[in-house]
Amino acid sequence: MGSLRGLRLAAGNCFRLCERDASSSVRLTRNSDWKRINGFCTKPQESPKPPSQTYSHRVPLHKPTDWERKILIWAGRFKKEEEIPETISFEMLDAAKNKLRVKISYVMIALTVAGCILMVIEGKQAVKRHESLTSLNLEKKARLREEAAMKAKTE
């Protein structure tokens, strides 16, 4: 066991020495590249060639469907359907969808809070009537037994 541990330590030390030597040579390479990038190269710079094709940086447009038009109106981006242009950008549509998602989540939060309040009120009224799930279940079982007994008598 001791010899294995010594072997592992020696291998680790050797690896660290090799790693240190390799990183220093990489640093030298990176520094020389950095000098070339900054324009310290002794070669004369060639003039850049004009691009063969001209690229227009236009945003791709999308023709909205009827459902997407409704989303744009519900999100408040446009007031009327006639105001919506023939083509819109995907970014505009995504922004409208996100805004609508937020509105729907707010409605869901409000409905959840209202449901919780309603359940608390219902529970307090049930306590005033001295109703509980146990008493309701016992009444239901007694009623089912009576129906089963009546059915057995008729047969």
Rank of each mutant, 00 (worst) to 15 (best):
G2L: 08
G6M: 07
L7M: 09
L7P: 01
L9G: 04
L9I: 04
L9W: 07
A11C: 11
G12V: 03
N13G: 08
N13A: 14
C14N: 05
C14Q: 13
R16C: 09
L17C: 09
L17I: 06
L17P: 03
C18E: 14
R20Y: 00
R20P: 00
R20H: 03
D21E: 13
A22G: 05
S23P: 00
S23Y: 03
V26F: 08
V26H: 07
R27C: 06
R27Y: 07
R27P: 01
R30M: 14
R30N: 10
N31C: 05
D33M: 15
W34R: 14
K35C: 08
I37S: 06
G39P: 03
F40T: 00
F40H: 11
F40E: 15
C41F: 04
C41Q: 12
C41D: 15
Q45V: 12
Q45K: 14
Q45P: 03
E46V: 02
P48F: 07
P48E: 12
P50L: 13
S52I: 10
Q53Y: 12
T54A: 12
S56E: 13
S56F: 14
S56C: 08
H57C: 08
H57N: 14
R58K: 14
R58P: 00
V59F: 03
P60Y: 04
H62A: 03
H62W: 04
K63F: 03
P64F: 05
T65E: 01
W67Q: 11
W67T: 10
E68S: 09
I71N: 02
L72P: 03
G76F: 00
R77T: 15
R77K: 15
R77W: 04
R77A: 14
K79C: 01
K80M: 10
K80A: 12
K80C: 09
E82F: 02
P85V: 00
E86H: 09
T87C: 11
I88Y: 00
I88E: 02
F90H: 12
F90L: 15
F90K: 10
F90R: 12
E91K: 14
E91F: 08
M92C: 04
M92T: 13
L93Y: 01
L93P: 02
D94V: 00
N98D: 13
N98W: 07
K99W: 00
L100E: 06
L100K: 05
R101H: 10
V102Q: 15
I104Q: 12
Y106C: 11
V107N: 11
V107S: 12
M108S: 06
A110F: 13
A110N: 09
L111D: 13
A114N: 12
G115E: 11
L118M: 12
L118E: 10
M119E: 09
M119Y: 02
G123W: 08
Q125L: 14
Q125D: 06
A126M: 09
V127R: 15
V127K: 15
K128R: 14
R129Y: 07
H130I: 01
E131N: 02
S132E: 07
N137P: 00
N137R: 10
K140A: 15
K141H: 03
A142E: 13
A142G: 01
L144C: 04
R145H: 09
E147V: 04
A148H: 04
A148S: 09
A148V: 02
A148M: 07
A149S: 06
M150V: 06
K153M: 05
T154Y: 11
T154N: 11
E155S: 08
